[in-house]
Design a protein around this nucleic acid. Sequence first.
DNA 1: CTCCATCGTTACTGCTGGTAACCACAGTCT
DNA 2: AGACTGTGGTTACCAGCAGTAACGATGGAG
Lengths: 214, 214
Amino acid sequence: METTPQREQKRAAEQRRRDLLEAAERVVLRDGPGASMNAIAAEAGITKPILYRHFGDKGGLYRALAKRHTDALLGALRAALDAPAERRRRVEGTLDTYLAAIETNPQVYRFLMHPAEDPPPLDRNFDVGRHSAPLLRRLGEELGKVIEERVDLGEDGAGRARIWGHGIVGMMHGAGDWWLGERPCSRAELVTAMADLLWGRLSSVEDRAEGPGF
Amino acid sequence: METTPQREQKRAAEQRRRDLLEAAERVVLRDGPGASMNAIAAEAGITKPILYRHFGDKGGLYRALAKRHTDALLGALRAALDAPAERRRRVEGTLDTYLAAIETNPQVYRFLMHPAEDPPPLDRNFDVGRHSAPLLRRLGEELGKVIEERVDLGEDGAGRARIWGHGIVGMMHGAGDWWLGERPCSRAELVTAMADLLWGRLSSVEDRAEGPGF
DNA sequence: CTCCATCGTTACTGCTGGTAACCACAGTCT
DNA sequence: AGACTGTGGTTACCAGCAGTAACGATGGAG
């Protein structure tokens, strides 16, 4: 026990874990979110049971894998949210940061949006809600906090802020996903249009001549 | 061929198909979106190959199953969108209709939000985008059309309208999913907060005293 | 020399979506 | 009557998946 004290053992184990995560990342980016444990183990040059000893089950591996990217994206967004500029510019910057992230690495985006496991096989409990990816929940909650901190929404401001947080994140996600699939316009145009929407253009815009109006 | 002319055969086949879909619906609502073909066949009192003869593969069955609900929800939303009231009331009514739908039957909601199949096993093509459920795409496109029809957005109004459509639908979905999971407030409060957000309160609200403002 | 803990393996279970091959019965043609 | 064909149904299988049990090395400690 002299040559390999527990310190070093632990360091080696963590290094091993990092290697496994990198291999898993390579496979997931290559084969999509449906990559098999067998494939990941093969990529890492080992066999399945080792993976299971390290991460418990597939969900554990995927959670560990997702955490890094989630943290990174969240950091970038926080920076954009804290930039020294007026509110409108800051909102635009945040939207653009998100869109740039999903644009430069759609595979990672696709993986992150995976709403956990479909078959957690026996969940007969009544938690029917929560379909969204954990990333979106975290983003919404975070943005809600920021809004609550910085803006005075009066009566029950905290509740309103959380609603807005999740709503804005949902808008960003929905529009971003559609945009990423069809690429109907440039990123800048998308950002401007979304900021316009958030700035209340929907209420101030004129009805068309005919029809019941919107 | 006299006693069972082709007409009657076809009618019988369609009736059979409807029965199968009903059985599938029962199972999916009981076991969640991960229900197995075996279970569905058993519920219908038959065996797997018959299911495959009728629907091709699991995706086909689920698509057929989803279409009914999607159409129903889309119809309700269209009605709310066409209601004779001023714009703000109409937006609130539409949001409330959506939320009421997912509230009264969360299992159906969960099923509908399933983004197609994860393992269409070999799709090495580069269609990395489109993660969202087809329902959301349809809703966003539909809303975009409505906005474009009824509102004058000036230069490139069609493009802007589509962005807004998908953005608003995303907002509705994101906030709705979070709300359905945590139930932090009443449906009416959620509707009001979201409508406020769309009405530009984010731009007009006052900064808090301290901090950089939002 | 023996014991023990760790790292790794092979080989399996039970499930899934999907299919091939077969069976039985209806009505038609000769 | 008896052979022919199509249609609805079955059993029995395949490949691949997540996950696990049981066994083999290897190397330091007593």
